[in-house]
Design a protein around this nucleic acid. Structure first.
Lengths: 132, 132, 132, 132
DNA sequence: GTGGTCTAGACCACA
DNA sequence: GTGGTCTAGACCACG
């Protein structure tokens, strides 16, 4: 039985980032964080599609890309699961590196806005707490 | 007159973010930060297009959007310049709000990567210093 | 009785061609070639499934299709065997026709690769000898 | 202007091989053969779709896969073209290797049909001439 | 004009 | 039950 799919993934329909890509990146992060371990079964395409009110093809596209990437494997007639050889359970340091591009972008914008680092860090701290 | 256009803007053609939008947002930030002041002349479409190896239509589109937004004005035969009534030189607090969406995204990714706030803040501090 | 099943059939699970179809076509060819004669007993579904590490349903499906096709018959309690009226021991010319589609496909690919017929025939000759 | 798209590609709707994959493999071969050279513009998705009576998405899927593979590049708003770094114009020997899997399959089937090599080679020669 | 995304719905292949 | 493919058609983003 599936864990609560709707909670597992969160997509933003209004975002400029396509839905299938949001899914791809979330799965990547969940695997990297070890929240999904090699061998774990993925929720079925239809299940995710229904839970998130998406077209199955959209979900399928995301899964296919992850399969090409080697993170998921397809077992005929049995659905998809996290690949055994998926690089999983990274250390905190490794996971932090996955966050670097986003932080670099934020830093670039901060500089262009001529915000001093302390202001930025205070705001970021606030946001991190809000989410927790 | 043309400051060094190529240095003023930094666009990434390989990015999923459309070029015209990269330009728009950079101009917005530069004006908000006061680095471009009301009355300042903008580099011409041609100039920017050549300096960054872009299609002039792309640059033109960005300028048009900024004009619609009221940040730039078109003066016949004089090219475009920062609008006199452009809300310029925002306070730090106001500028920080412009950064919020990016930081929120970073926070979301951090949570999905199961990184604790301290680790994230440390990395971000490091990056902010690197760029300075 | 069971000849060495694992040797009799060679299936490739990684192939895009479905497993049951690989089985069907191999049986068809083996019968056409006279390697399996009318009345011969087929290895049981279980036996094949275990030998090739397949889902028994997959093997069963292949057998059922062959039964519908009239090549196999089911005898109660006796498993399946090659049908008495199976058109067996085709002439070489007839058997060659069964090979035609595959050769036509190869010819098409050769043309698209701009390979001249002699090169192709030389390579094919080589491969035919390797297998022998 | 496009060369005659309908002639460039030939797809078989009845085939078990999905259409998008037929397209992918044909483009691969055409590039390998040097019939499409780096920098060449590809016929547009819509054009191919109309010429072959396909849904544009099907063609688009093929193009996307080829882009991921690095054989095609997308120029924003300008359509797709053969990547500059696409390995092109292979030697006859290299191209022949691309044909090997298909020939090996044919040889396997021939053996299962108990056809002797001469019969097979004669038939193949005939088919190669028919197409020319 | 270009390609990209998404939907709704149908049908197939596989186990 | 699973995923895969295809269609028809709409809308968006880009140049």
């Amino acid at each position: 039985m599936a864990t609560h799919t709707a909670q597992l993934f969160s997509i933003t329909t209004g975002s400029p980032e396509p839905i299938y890509r949001q899914l791809v990146e979330q799965v990547r992060r969940l695997i990297a964080a070890g929240q999904m371990a090699p061998g774990d079964g993925m929720p079925s395409v239809r299940e995710v599609a229904q839970a998130l009110a998406l077209n199955p093809m959209t979900v399928s596209k995301a899964y296919s890309l992850l399969e090409m990437e080697g993170l998921l494997t397809r077992k005929r007639g049995m659905g998809m699961s996290v690949a055994e050889r998926a690089p999983s359970g990274h250390s905190a340091a490794e996971r932090a590196e996955l966050l670097r591009p986003t932080l670099e972008r934020a830093a670039l914008e901060a500089r262009q806005l001529e915000l001093d680092p302390d202001t930025v860090l205070n705001l970021f701290t606030l946001i991190l707490k809000e989410q927790a």
